[in-house]
Write a protein that binds this DNA or RNA. Structure first.
Length: 949
RNA sequence: AGGACCAUAGCUCAGUUGGUUAGAGCGCCACGUUGACAUCGUGGAGGUCGGCGGUUCAAAUCCGCCUGGUCCUACCA
């Protein structure tokens, strides 16, 4: 083995090997265990969130694979409609100076496919770097032929059941992207804005009770005035009761619009009158429906003012009787220009009563960054009510469990207040809606044009045109768990691996994706898509900030693995920015945080860091310090293995017929191994990867390396030690290490494999020359029979004495190597035997050349003293000791004991404590009190002796 | 406005059903290259567990209120 741990070569080498040996595919035997990867965007690249998520999934899959399950980790990518289309549009704009319209639909889509071919492999290559043991042979894409089939099938069947319908509805419209987007893609941002109070003159000479000739309405969006079709007052509002049924004359437009009574109007807000614009506001749309008001759309798809408005009833039928004319001066104005102009015009007319500054929230499209406009458009919808019910029940009755459980509430809250799902998008990239129209506008839904003709008996010569729109990306990814397994065909994979075992996902897409998957999957397979949902938090930077390009705090997982030079990192963070003015600050912050750039850490260390920070459900602040620490851990494991190999390779590791003798230390470490195995397994079962990684770390570093390896040295290096004892120690060294590697493998696949190849033959788990992989070895199973409490207590005693002596050396400034004598007072009955069994270890590890019992404490020489439980370790002072230092140390120790004694005495003198606390608790306190008092007595005696010197 | 989650050492975090001398890693201080490892070893300093109140013999842990933070949902005509 190389002297230093160098992850980069190990990692790529092993991944290629595993993949070539086809070790990721399902074994075909054992209980099925499957995970469907949340498909990353096909043109995306791996970010910290992916890396975190993939680590968790891979850890689960590798663990279950080792447990003997028939594991499938299904891989694939998502076509990601809007994101991908925008990316390619930007690319061709930059490279060719063309828009997608210049190219036309077909040519543009060809371009997207081209781009997919070119860059689609990027993220999957990065996934390999993370060590993800996905079954590449089954890789899917949400727009491949199979998915096309599944999507058509689902759409047509839902339509046949009238669960998909088409209608003219108010939707969130993105004026930049020219498409409807879902509520979930809308981001609400707080803004400072104005609230304009306008006067709307009453028509026909009517006046208010106070004699005014107008009503006052207020709005933050004056431009929508053009589309007002009513003014609402509260039915309970006495001020306006007499005006209900009368009219106002809409300023600037001149339309007569009714005053209606509707509970939407809040008497306590403003004047109590509300302008109603059913075609441009979601609340007003509902008021319009209730009051039978017409819908007047005044905007184009760019959210500019139309020349002539469009009037509809609530069913979306055109209303030819309404005068659609709008004042010509606004035609073509963008909504914000129109706003300014209209406010100015109202003011000129004396109709602007006041302008109030308010803070309000505005909806922004999360992709375009443009302000979203509610717009009346023709769209396709899924009626979700009947789909939601079973989806709610599946979680209620435990068929699907969320981990952590509190996300179930979030799910219920959303599912119980679900709006119909708008599934059409006015994009080109995506699954085109399988609906055809004839010249009269009749709609035919079918799996293909041919089927549409056949189904509806349409003559071949009747021209049909397919719907221009595509489906929401989440419509296809909602079919992910079963679509990837071959549905609508009833494939063996579907039978074996569905429902999947667990979905690993971020809380941010519970609504987008998880809820829809549950609905769609239950509907079409009658099964839940997954039995458990493990929800993880967001990966943030060390300060708890969201990582974003604009903040310049993005870390690339690959850079953490391979390392990156400072200059490259700065360039990466500041290049190609939307807001170049921030570059300077980002450069400065980056140089301050990473003065030397980022060192290579390797994939295993990164994975281990993620796992150690994966506490359920909350966001993680990525900690570079821990990454360094776990890279060191890999190095520790590496070097410990070197030690083991140096002592075991070419030696008898006790596999043959020769007698083997196990020392106390051997029995102790084997015992602790069993407990660690049980601990790690349990943590994995509970998705507590932080506990699993912690248990492994502790065992490897603090017990196996710090103590067991040290304890093995005297045995292996002592000329006089018996051959059987050496064999026993070698066998234990090797076997425990081999088990550690298997335990570590799901978390740290590369280093564990690399070392295991050398260690396994020595441990007898891999025949010499055999071609095996740790990936397919059994997961360590704790054996109750090997747990040895006696050995644990004995080793704890030994450690206590050694630490006490080291402590005295440090405090007294005695060189670590200087041989010392020690005296022990008799503590527990077993201690005599313990001393006998451990003389060798004490002499080597504590550098004690003589250890004796002190039979009569009265006869104790002047000594430095340290407590080990009830026992006292004395190192006779002779010329070694600084009197003042030792006195101070004893005084401090005495004070500590007294404080403890005081606390317990207080408890025990409390009658209610003695009366009400369980007997065992009281006894325990009494026991502690006795111990502390004994310790204090010994310390005080020593103190007095030294003081008298 | 409603709801969720969080607050433990300088930093990042553990802490099962209330009973622990409240832990780990990083950082810090001192000492140390003895034959796995300076990406290391040994020893040490550092916490009134956000605040107040309650339940209890006993609270970091359970309850209420408050403060601070993160996020979600809704509203803002």
């Amino acid at each position: 083995m190389d002297k230093t741990y160098q992850p980069e070569q190990i990692e790529t080498r092993w991944y290629e090997r595993w993949e070539a040996d086809n070790r990721f595919a399902p074994s075909g035997s054992g209980e099925p265990y499957s995970i469907m990867i949340p498909p990353p965007n096909v043109t995306g690249s791996l970010h910290m969130g992916h890396a975190f998520q993939d680590t968790i999934m891979d850890t689960l899959i590798r663990w279950r694979r080792m447990q003997g399950h028939n594991t499938l980790w299904q891989i694939g990518t998502d076509h990601a409609g809007i994101a991908t289309q925008m990316l390619v549009e930007r690319k061709i704009a930059a490279e060719e100076g063309k828009s997608r319209h210049d190219l036309g639909r077909e040519a543009f889509i060809d371009k997207v496919w081209e781009w997919k071919q070119e860059s689609g492999g990027h993220i999957t290559r990065q996934l390999r770097r993370m060590g993800a043991s996905v079954d590449w042979s089954r890789e899917r894409f949400t727009m491949d032929d199979g998915f096309y089939q599944a999507v058509q099938e689902v759409f047509v069947r839902l339509h046949e059941e009238e669960l998909i319908y088409r209608g003219k509805r108010l939707v969130n419209w993105d004026p930049t992207l020219h498409t409807a987007i879902s509520d979930l893609e809308v981001e609400n941002r707080d803004q400072q804005g104005s609230f304009w109070h306008f006067r709307y003159p009453l028509a026909d000479g009517v006046t208010t009770d106070e004699g005014r000739d107008h009503l006052v309405v207020a709005t933050t969006r004056p431009e929508t005035l053009l589309g007002d079709t009513g003014v609402a007052v509260n039915p309970e509002d006495p001020r306006y009761a007499s005006l209900v049924g009368k009219f106002v004359e809409l300023p600037l437009v001149g339309r007569r619009i009714p005053i209606v009574a509707d509970e939407h109007a809040d008497m306590d807000k403003g004047s109590g009158c509300v302008k109603i614009t059913p075609a441009h506001d979601f609340n007003d749309y509902e008021v319009g429906r209730r009051q039978g008001l017409p819908l007047i759309n005044v905007f184009t798809q760019d959210a500019a003012v139309l020349e002539r408005a469009e009037a509809f009833d609530i069913q979306g039928r055109a209303l030819p009787d309404i005068d659609p004319s709008l004042p010509g001066k606004y035609a073509g104005l963008d909504r914000f220009e129109a706003r300014t102009t209209i406010v100015a015009d109202m003011e000129a007319l004396g109709l602007l009563e006041q302008v109030e500054a308010v803070s309000n929230t505005l909806p922004y499209g999360d992709r375009s960054g443009d302000v979203i406009e509610p717009l009346l458009t023709d769209q396709w919808f899924v009626a979700v009510e009947s789909l939601a019910r079973p989806a709610i029940e599946a979680v209620e009755n435990g068929d699907i469990q969320f981990v952590p459980k509190n996300y179930e509430n979030m799910y219920f809250a959303w599912m119980r207040d679900l709006q119909d799902w708008c599934i059409s998008r006015q994009l080109w990239w995506g699954h085109r809606i399988p609906a055809w129209y004839d010249a009269d506008g009749n709609v035919y839904v079918a799996r293909s044009e041919a089927e549409a003709r056949e189904k509806h008996g349409l003559p071949a010569e009747l021209p049909l045109t397919q719907d221009e729109d595509v489906l929401d990306t989440w419509f296809s990814s909602g079919l992910w768990t079963f679509g990837t397994l071959g549905w609508p065909e009833q494939t063996p994979e579907l039978a074996t691996f569905h429902p999947s075992s667990v979905l690993v996902t971020g809380f941010d897409i519970i609504f987008f994706w998880v809820a829809r998957m549950i609905m769609m999957t239950l509907k079409f397979t009658g099964e839940v898509p997954f039995k458990q949902v493990y929800v993880h938090g967001l990966v943030r930077d060390g300060q708890g900030q969201k990582m974003s390009k604009s903040k310049g705090n993005v870390l690339d997982p690959i850079d953490l693995i391979d390392g990156i030079a400072l200059e490259t990192l700065v360039e990466k963070r500041t290049g190609n920015m939307m807001q170049p003015q921030k570059a300077k600050a980002i450069t400065k912050a980056t140089r301050a945080e990473f003065p030397e750039g980022i060192e290579p850490h390797g994939t295993d260390a990164l994975r281990f860091t993620f796992l150690s920070q994966a506490t359920t459900g909350r966001d993680i602040k990525f900690d570079m310090g821990r990454l360094d620490g776990y890279r060191n851990f890999c190095n520790k494991l590496w070097n410990a293995s070197r030690y083991v190999l140096m002592n075991a390779e070419g030696e008898d590791t006790g596999l043959g017929e020769e007698p083997v003798e196990l020392s106390l230390a051997d029995r102790w470490i084997v015992s602790r191994l069993q407990q660690t195995e049980a601990q790690v397994t349990r943590a994995m079962e509970e998705f507590r990867f932080d506990h699993a990684s912690q248990a492994l770390y502790d065992f490897v570093w603090n017990e196996y390396c710090d103590w067991y390896l040290e304890l093995s040295k005297p045995v292996l290096w002592d000329e006089g030690a018996r051959a059987a004892a050496k064999r026993g120690t070698r066998r234990t060294l090797v076997r425990v290490l081999e088990a550690i590697l298997r335990l570590a493998h799901p978390m740290m696949p590369f280093i564990s494999e690399e070392i295991w190849q050398r260690v396994a033959p020595l441990a007898g788990t891999l025949a010499m020359g055999e071609d095996g992989s740790i990936m397919n070895q059994p997961w360590p199973l704790a054996e109750e029979a090997l747990i040895d409490d006696r050995a644990t207590r004995d080793i704890e005693w030994l450690k206590g004495v050694i630490v006490a002596v080291r402590n005295i050396r440090a405090e007294m400034n005695i060189a670590p190597g200087k041989p010392l004598e020690a005296l022990l007072t008799k503590g527990r009955p077993d201690d005599a035997e313990r001393l006998k069994a451990n003389r060798l270890f004490l002499s080597k590890l504590a550098k004690l050349e003589r250890v004796e019992w002190l039979d009569d404490p009265e006869q104790a020489p002047l000594s430095a003293t340290q407590l080990v439980g009830e026992m006292e370790v004395l190192v006779p002072m002779a010329d070694l000791i600084d009197k003042d230092v030792e006195l101070a140390r004893l005084a401090k120790e005495i004070e500590k004991q007294e404080k403890l004694i005081g606390g317990i005495e207080k408890k025990l003198s409390n009658e209610s404590f003695v009366a009400k606390a369980p007997e065992a608790v009281v006894e325990k306190e009494r026991g502690k009190l006795a111990d502390f008092e004994a310790s204090r007595r010994l310390l005080v005696e020593q103190h007095e002796k030294i003081e008298a010197l």
